[in-house]
Design a protein around this nucleic acid. Structure first.
Length: 310
DNA sequence: GCATGTCAAGTTGTG
DNA sequence: CACAACTTGACATGC
């Protein structure tokens, strides 16, 4: 059965994640910086716990955790370690409870580092910053039990084969906590499913299939072919496949890349109807969009403990 | 209060 | 050459 996933934020539910900026933090002395960051991390951990309850209440089966759960954690100047925070203990306890609830509710958790995180760059400082960020997200993933850290392949730098070679080399030398969670996703500009498949098969990296990106940036594969190829990369490691969907904000005209508030049912590939997979819904209306798609597809509530499936 | 400009980070494509 | 787009607006400031 398909399980739908909500991405990062809520539009209806009163669940808010907070952040700060390097500029704001820079005006404080170190102790005050850590006190401020401590407050934000603790609040965000508590909000994540509420998020799991809300996802469960909505009958949804997956949640993507936003990258800056710990704001500025990997910043070169204002970064910090969890142990430096006065509330490190309560934060860890809260995140351990997130993990327990995710297991009880059978909710799948994932991370999607943002555009600055690349393993294909020829610039060492970009790779170093990316590795810091990946290690941070893996640390969080360990604490809450997230099984996926999903990356785009990044830039081409005028030579896709060489960029892919750098990407493969970096993947092979990742720390285990990152490596076991790393997945790659086709993007809407540079890397097709067909570009990533050889690397994914060689290194046993699961491939997340984003059908909107595929439609924006076609590679000759049909949706069914791309779906099956990606599914195989997950089958090989005996894990549930991940799919992404979104609809174009202004239709399939000049610029289909920006995301719409909701998913048009006509954009949902019928090939997916009977799949066992996680489908992240990338739509601005957040849980409203997930619920609408869930109804349109006639999917039942995703049930955890006590269900006849569980 | 509310409107508005700003915010760590990469790369590509468009106007 | 500036800006939008990408998984996502929220925060700080000034009126």
């Amino acid at each position: 059965m398909l399980r739908l996933g909500l991405c990062c934020l809520f539009r209806q539910a009163p669940i808010k994640f907070r952040t700060t900026t390097a500029r704001t933090i820079s005006r404080l002395v170190r102790d005050a910086q850590l006190a401020r960051l401590d407050q934000l991390c603790l609040e965000n951990a508590q909000q994540l716990l509420s998020a799991l309850d809300e996802v469960r209440r909505l009958g949804v089966g997956a949640f993507r955790v936003l990258s800056p759960l710990f704001p500025l954690y990997t910043h070169p100047e204002y970064g910090y370690q969890l142990e430096e925070l006065p509330s490190a203990g309560p934060i860890q306890v809260t995140l351990a409870e997130v993990r327990r609830r995710k297991e009880r509710y059978r909710i799948r958790l994932s991370f999607h580092p943002d555009q600055f995180v690349l393993l294909s760059s020829p610039r060492p400082e970009v790779t170093e910053a990316s590795l810091r960020e990946l290690n941070y997200q893996a640390e969080l993933a360990e604490m809450i039990g997230a099984d996926v850290i999903n990356l785009h392949a990044g830039g081409v730098y005028g030579d896709k084969a060489t960029a892919l070679h750098r990407l493969a080399a970096q993947i092979e030398s990742l720390p285990e906590a990152v490596r076991q969670r790393l997945t790659l996703e086709n993007d809407d500009r540079s890397y097709h499913v067909v570009d990533l498949l050889p690397l994914c098969e060689k290194l046993n990296v699961p491939l997340v299939y984003d059908v909107h990106h595929h439609r924006c940036n076609p590679d000759g594969l049909t949706i069914e072919e791309a779906t099956m190829a990606c599914k195989q990369t997950w089958d090989r490691v005996k894990r549930e496949p991940y799919l992404h969907i979104s609809s174009p904000k202004q239709g399939w005209g000049a610029n289909p890349k920006p995301h719409a508030d909701f998913i048009e049912l006509s954009d949902f590939p019928q090939e997916w109807q009977s799949l066992r997979a996680t489908l992240d819904v990338e739509a601005k209306a957040k849980e409203s969009a997930v619920l609408r798609l869930k109804e349109q597809l006639n999917l039942p509530d995703w049930l955890g403990e006590g269900s006849i499936h569980g």
